[in-house]
Every structure is written in structure tokens, then in C-alpha cells.
Computed example of a mutant assay.
Amino acid sequence: MLVSVTGGTGYVGSHSVAAVLRAGHRVRLLVRDESAVERALAPLGVDPGAVDVVRGDVLDRFGVERLAQGADALLHAASVYSFDSRAHREIARTTVAGTERVLDAARRAGVGRVVHVSSFGALLPSPGRELGPDSPVGRPRETYLAAKAAAESVARAHQAAGAPVTITYPPALLGPHDPKLGDQVTRLRNTLRGLMPIWPTGGLPVGDVRDTAALHAGLLGGVGPAGNRHFGPGEHLTTRRFVAVLREVTGRALPTAHLPARAMLPLGLVTGLVQRVWPWHIPAEYGALYTCACAARVAEGASGSPGRPVPETFADTVRWLHREGLLSARAAGTAAAG
């Protein structure tokens, strides 16, 4: 079976590609930079020569059409995942238009199975206390989340029209081998580097990128769970629990103060404005604060299998950061010896 993939050199995409190949399928990637294929896949034990490559991006109509042509299944994982205000223009430019182009091309090409990677954040703020497959599309007041919500509406419109589109909602993902060092892994790293002594209250679902990748491989191969909307395996963590698990796996004290998330939102707005002109990353992003303030839980049973234990995922992430020279032995604490 041939599986075409967008976003295959990103965090979720690269792990999903590895899982699809392990399941015995062929993979075709849409990439802007072919050199990124080896950087993303080689650390996962994937021979870059084992995948076919189409040059282009999700806004390139001809590239997207070549990607979809002849594919048995397609994974749309391309997205600009960032709460950094400097990325707002790119997020707004690519996320919704890219989803429209990719899903339209897959439908015209007669692709038999399409998986669109959404986010639990696309359903925020939730009118109820829990998120489930029937939760309405959210109307979040944050650029990244709003773009994911708009892309979610595009995918649901294809579902309503009878297209074979399945939507997945990964939690906030951690785990080893993040080729682009995205926001969530960076947030964990910044905490261990002492750059985040103040955290908002609230919480968010957290999971392992390898578990979400396994979900995608199953859905693409037709052996996944029934239904056309699925939450990735994970566990809801309060921010206090998040820091507590980091203390557990590193043996470090990590002194932290917790302030009400909603009270911190004005600070997030200010830092977002400053970040547009400040060259170094400020780890106090409005989007992260907003997500914690919403603090919606995934309904019990909605994410299927429970996935890896959270401490295991955290420890693997810390060890990987240390091995890659992105975290000192002191910052990694006892996890560095694992």
C-alpha cells in the first residue's frame, strides 16, 4: 500500500512515517527541502532512500496533486505548530489553505483513506468540561488554535460530504527525536534550564508522539479503531503535575510558582507584542496560557488505548535532549544517566 504524507519531516509526521514503514507500507513524502528527509528520518532508523519524495509544499497545487496521485492512503500532518507571535503570518497563510488544497486533491485523486491531523486545541474553548468526538469546532482567540479550528471545519465538511476522511486530535506531544524542536519539547527544555519559574494554573492533555504515530499507522492501514474522529493516547495533566513529573524523572527541585492562568493572559498578550521585535524567544506565550486557561479534559475512553506512562515519556524526552547536546547533564539531572 502506498501512503502519501505531508509534514513528514516534522515531529508527528516523521514518527508516523517510521510507524507506517514498520507496518510494511510504502511512503511518499511532499517536502520543500530534500535534505530535511535524512535529518528527520535517519534518527528513527529509517533509510531515507526507502521513501519517495515529491518536491513542493502544501500551497503548491502541482506538488500536492503529484503527491495524491495513485496513493492508497494519505496523511495530512503538515502544520506550522507554534505559539510564537513571529510565526503568526506563516500560520495564517498555510494552515487553512494547505488543508483545503491537500484534502481537495486527495478527494479528486480517489484516495481511499485520508487522515487529517488536527489538535485537541481546535475544539477549544469547549462548551462542556470534556472533549469528545462529537465536540463542536472551537472558536479560540489565539492565532495557531484559530487556524487549526478553521482547518478542522474544512476536514469536517469533507466528512459531511461522504469523503473518507478521518480526523485525529493529538494531545500536547513529547518524546524523543523532535527534528525541529517544536514548542512543546522546547517548553520542557526551558523548564529544566530555569527559564520558566512561573507557570499558569490549569492543565492540558499530554501524550507520547510515538503513540500518536502508532494510531496514525493503524488508521492508514485500515486496522485502527472504528469511527472517523480519534483522540491520540494521552493523560490530562495539571501544570502542577507536569512540573512534578519533571522533578520525579530528573531528581531536581525545580522551584516553581503557579499563578491563575486567566490572570496571566494579559502578560501573554504583551509578550506576544514584544516578541515580534525581540530576537530571542520569550517563554511566556499567550497561546500556551490560553490553552491552560481552557483546561478541557478529553472524555474517558475517547483516546482509546492509554499509551505510555507519562514519566516514561518525560524521561525519554529529557534523555534525548541531553544526548543531542540540547540540555546539560546538570539540567537533565538523574535522567541523564538513564
Rank of each mutant, 00 (worst) to 15 (best):
T6K: 05
T6M: 05
G7H: 08
V12E: 04
A18R: 10
R22Y: 01
G24A: 09
R32W: 09
E34F: 03
S35C: 01
A36Q: 14
A36N: 11
V37E: 09
R39T: 14
L44F: 03
D47F: 04
A50K: 04
D52P: 00
F62S: 13
E65Q: 13
L67Y: 04
A68V: 09
A78D: 10
D84V: 02
D84E: 12
S85I: 06
S85Q: 08
R89M: 03
E90D: 15
T94Y: 04
G98R: 12
R108V: 14
V111N: 07
V111I: 13
V114H: 01
S119H: 09
A122G: 06
G128D: 15
L131H: 05
D134E: 14
P136I: 03
V137P: 02
V137H: 02
K148R: 15
K148A: 08
A150C: 05
A150Y: 03
A151Y: 06
E152G: 06
Q159V: 11
G162T: 04
T168A: 14
P170M: 13
P170G: 12
L173T: 10
V185I: 13
T186K: 11
R187W: 09
R189Q: 14
R189Y: 02
L192S: 03
L192P: 02
G194C: 06
P197L: 07
P200D: 10
D211A: 13
T212N: 07
A213Q: 08
A214V: 01
V223E: 15
G224C: 13
G227V: 11
G227W: 12
H230A: 12
G232H: 09
G234D: 11
L237E: 03
F242Q: 01
F242L: 14
V245A: 02
L246S: 13
R247E: 05
E248N: 02
E248V: 00
H258D: 01
P260M: 04
R262W: 13
R262K: 12
R262F: 02
A263V: 10
M264D: 02
P266S: 11
L267H: 01
L269P: 00
V270E: 07
V274I: 15
Y286P: 03
G287I: 11
A288K: 06
Y290L: 07
C294R: 08
A295I: 00
A299D: 02
G304L: 10
G304S: 09
G304W: 05
R308L: 10
V310M: 11
R319Q: 14
W320N: 10
G325K: 05
L326G: 00
A331W: 06
A335D: 12
A335Q: 10
G338F: 01
